[in-house]
Design a protein around this nucleic acid. Structure first.
Lengths: 68, 68
DNA sequence: GTATAATGTAAAATGAACTTTACGTAAAGA
DNA sequence: TCTTTACGTAAAGTTCATTTTACATTATAC
């Protein structure tokens, strides 16, 4: 999985802290998602897309090796 | 989270077993998702949407109480 | 040059997603 | 009636998503 969360976040001028707060998650969660350490849960992914008024598919892209 | 996976699946004439096989997951996983026992991971949700040639957003919908 | 803000790392703990196995039920057909 | 197909439940185990805490780095700004 790739994602462009940090691009959207910076476009909006949000810090990681601010985004975490908007989403109701910890800052660690944002860092880990942006750095690709793990994938967000589905509801979190949808909330991230919502915050930036876009779709899950335009924010996150599947890669060959993510079968799960 | 609500989802309409079983509707799409039946429209395509797939059994739960067949869908599980197409996705590379167990039948239990399909049952549990359809019954709302838990949410799929993000990559799995995207693969489900792909199989039915639709989007994550049209397959899964956030509800008030899913903040994560 | 010291405070502050933003980003990062690491590790331990919890809960959720997923697998495997095994068993139960119901319908459909030969 | 026996077999097969589809759907469901339950429980134990593994891995992954998320939190919390604590500390490190870098840049800016005063």
């Amino acid at each position: 999985m790739k994602n462009i969360v940090s691009q959207y976040r910076k476009q909006q001028g949000y810090s990681q802290d601010k985004l975490a707060e908007l989403l109701g998650v910890s800052r660690q969660t944002i860092i880990s998602i942006e750095k690709g350490k793990y994938n967000p849960s589905l509801p979190l992914a949808m909330m991230i897309a919502n915050v930036f008024q876009t779709t899950v598919e335009s924010m996150f892209t599947l890669e060959a090796d993510d079968y799960k």
